[in-house]
């Protein structure tokens, strides 16, 4: 696991928002910004960022993944830190970018420089900024889903739990299957939908048995898979990204796959910030 160096005063942080959050659920991005600012960072959102290149990389298309990686490396240079609200995209940048440029010393050096500066959101907040949420309440029984890449590539396990422990009213009901893959797996769930569904069903059944009201996690891909399946089954368990809860913004946006009726726009939520 990464160890933080000396942290500069009010560090500059580039938010790599990820393509899924960008399109599907901007509220996670705004929650991340809010948390980073509360933790004392200056947040920037580099305009030329798109996708980390993971879909091509995991499909075996290293050439296109390299092309995308080069652009991400360019887009994210010059900031003290790069923070990603996703374990798998952070893992891509931290663990796999350097491997992609094994045969190209110049790009490899740049990839390694980016790797060292990059952090998954919850890990950055806890391990680097020593952040604790204050004055947030979330009165729910939570089942936390440890996404595979975050857990096994980056060692993220305690960080989201420690953030949630600082939120009043939370109770975490640990599932035996917390660390089991939800069956998303990027293109896996599209190529092998039946297997993927059976995997997520097992996870959902275990959580239901445990009596949790909500499922939280740190990767929107997994959460969309879990929430999409819960919704199709007609179950009422709500699903949010952990950042939305810790930022105190869960009540401002409907849960994933939940009805938008109660939603206030995420932008206005940020606007209310003191």
């Amino acid at each position: 696991m990464k160890q933080p160096d000396q942290v500069p005063q009010s560090p500059s942080v580039a938010l790599f928002v990820t393509c899924l959050v960008d399109v599907m659920r901007p509220s996670i991005g705004f929650a991340a910004v809010s948390l980073l600012e509360r933790a004392g960072c200056q947040v920037f959102v580099p305009e030329t960022q798109t996708c980390c290149g993971q879909p091509g990389y995991n499909a075996g298309d290293e050439k296109s993944a390299r092309g995308i990686a080069e652009q991400v490396i360019e887009a994210l240079q010059g900031y003290d830190y790069v923070v990603v609200p996703s374990g798998s995209c952070a893992g891509m940048i931290i663990k796999h970018y350097p491997d992609l440029f094994a045969d190209d010393a110049a790009w490899r050096a740049r990839a390694e420089d980016l790797s060292v500066r990059s952090w998954e959101l919850t890990s950055f907040l806890v391990d680097v900024m020593k952040f604790r949420p204050v004055g947030i309440t979330f009165d729910k029984v939570i089942s936390y889903h440890d996404s595979c890449s975050g857990l096994r590539e980056l060692g993220i396990k305690d960080q989201p739990r420690s953030l949630l422990a600082g939120v009043d009213g939370t109770k975490i009901e640990e599932s035996d299957l917390a660390e089991s893959c939800c069956g998303f797996g990027g293109l896996f769930c599209v190529k092998y939908p039946d297997i993927s569904t059976a995997m997520v069903d097992r996870k959902i059944a275990e959580v239901s048995d445990g009596g949790a009201d909500v499922i939280l996690g740190g990767d929107l891909g997994c959460l969309m898979n879990i929430a999409g399946r819960l919704s199709r089954q007609g179950k009422s368990t709500n699903v949010w990204h952990v950042a939305e809860v810790v930022a105190g913004m869960a009540d401002q946006s409907a849960s994933i796959c939940g009805s938008h009726d109660a939603q206030t726009s995420a932008v206005s939520a940020v606007g209310k910030r003191p």
Binding site: M24, T197, G228, R229, S231, R232, S253, I256
Partner: peptide
Amino acid sequence: KRDLPAPQ
């Protein structure tokens, strides 16, 4: 087998 959350 799943619903897709609508973008916000």
